[in-house]
Each structure stands twice: as C-alpha cells, then as structure tokens.
Amino acid sequence: MSKVLVLAESREGSLRNVSFEAIAAGKKISGGGEVVAVLLGDAAGEQAAELGAFGADRVVTVEHPHLKQYTSDGYGQALMAVIEQENPEAIVFGHTALGKDLSPKIAAKLQVGLVSDVTDIEGEGDEAIFIRPIYSGKAFEKVKLKDDVKFITVRPNNIAPLAKEEGRAAEVSSLSVDITNLRTIIKEVVRKSTDGVDLSEAKVVVAGGRGVKSADGFAPLKELADLLGGAVGASRGACDADYVDYSLQIGQTGKVVTPDLYIAAGISGAIQHLAGMSNSKVIVAINKDPEANIFKVADYGIVGDLFEVIPMLTEEFRAVLSK
C-alpha cells in the first residue's frame, strides 16, 4: 500500500477527464493505499468535491495568483512544495500539454525516472509495469521503474476512470506556497481549437482528409461529430490544403487520438496518419477508393462518396438515438 499523488487539471473551469483517469491509475498503483489529488490555481478549491467523487481520498489545494495560468516555474514550485509535504511513493500526471511540459522538470528535480504516455498498467505497487506505445504506436513496451518514486503520465482516453460516487467526500486541505521568480510571462492565449469537445479526449472523432475537398466540406462532418458528442479531426493533407486549422491535425506530426470511435472520411490512410489514430478502439472508413490503405486498419468500411454517406449516417444516428 502506498501513497500516490495525482495532479488534477482543469480546462475552462472544469476538470478534465484525464484527471479522473489519472486517479484511477493512481488507485491501481497504490494497491489500496491513498490517492491524494493536487489542485493548483487561483480558485482551486471549488473542484475538490468532484475529485472525491471520482476516487481521490484527499485533495490538497494550492491557491496563488501566479497559478492562474500555467507556467513550469509556478506549477513546479507549487508541486514541489506539495511533494515535500506529502512524500508520495508514486506520482501521476495526465499526458496533456501541461503534463508533458511539467513532468520532466519535476522528474529532474527529484532525480527519478519517468514513464511518459502510459496507456495501461499491469500489477500494482512496486511490481507495477507500465505499458506505453513507441514508434508512434507501431509497437508497445512494458516498462518498470527502479526508483522508490514511481512517476508516470497517462495518455487520455485509455485508462477507465472509476465510477463516480456522488457524495463520496475527500478531505480537503490547502497549502500556502510562496511562488516567486517566474521566468516566463504569458502574454496571451489565442484559442484556435474548436469549441466544445477536446480532440485528444473525445470519445468520438470524425476526421476528414483531402477527399473533403474544401473548408465547407467539413460542415457535414462537424454536424455528425456534434450529434455524437465528438470532435472533428483532419489528416495532414486537409490541413496542408487549408481546409482546417493545423490544430485539428491527427498523425505522427499532430495529435495522437485514441477515441472509442474514429470515423475517417475521405482519408487515404498514409502511414503518418495511421500513427495518430490506429489505436482507436473502433475505426470506420468511408472512402470512394476501395483500395485505400485506410480500409486495412478499419473495423468497418463503406466504399462510397463521403458527401452521400456522412449525411445519411447523421440522419440514421439521429433517428436511432432519439428513440
């Protein structure tokens, strides 16, 4: 039994799903021990209850004006103070932009190993083995940490969160930390990502390629994605052709996604694109070319014009889901 520290992360005021997944990962590593979630921000306390409902035993908050926006210096100082107080045997972050940026700094400060981008965990406690994709998902490795402190980041959408228990309360405490000498000053954040569902955490992704032919061509894809509570993605070809912003690009360069359902429309399936989505749970390919590479990784395929098929799919889902 061990104590595990989990960094909770929010986006636009609500906790990210990956935080609940990280708690589940923490529970597993702890072997029945204690999971302590950490909330950093300028009004961090509000979200503590939800973390409890998803399995955190305790919540430590650090509130400071310098934590309103993420900087590696500010978050690094706050988190090191929490680590010193709690002395955890394991630490779990989400493998998000923030987690990727901050975790190597903390690992270097603690002089420990770090297993990044974990998609599954076998065993628990000291025996825990972490599974992660390598070579852009073309292979997997199982990794053990030799240190006393087990530090991992978990890829969103892979480790199932624990069932939410309304009313399950976590003990909340706050820690006051002096945060000084921020070397980075954030001037502005320009939001380019589409509203609503975050692509890397979406359960459903509807992605378009060159076959979508224009920016307007993405409208039916967006309609289907909205209906299914999902997000729109794109191949590099579609981004290069300026149909959509690069923030939507899925692939080796771009985002790696592992949704429950990936619908590829008008995407040929270049190896670089497959690197970003081939580990999705279920893949549907829609393409006019029956020889397209995407059909090789698809679970279900429809050979046809996406501009006919996608609207039909939207109608059919709408009919079925409204029942």
């Binding site: 420990v112 190993g113 770090l114 297993v115 083995i129 390598i134 998902g137 073309k138 292979a139 997997f140 490795e141 199982k142 990794v143 053990k144 940490l145 030799k146 240190d147 081939s278 580990n279």
Partner: peptide, 11 residues
C-alpha cells in the same frame, strides 16, 4: 537508467 524495459511487442 531509472527505468527498465521488460518487454517490447507489436500490437
């Protein structure tokens, strides 16, 4: 190394 790869396999 602080980590040890115990197995590599293909999906």
């Amino acid at each position: 190394a602080k980590t040890e790869t115990v197995e590599i396999y293909l999906p």
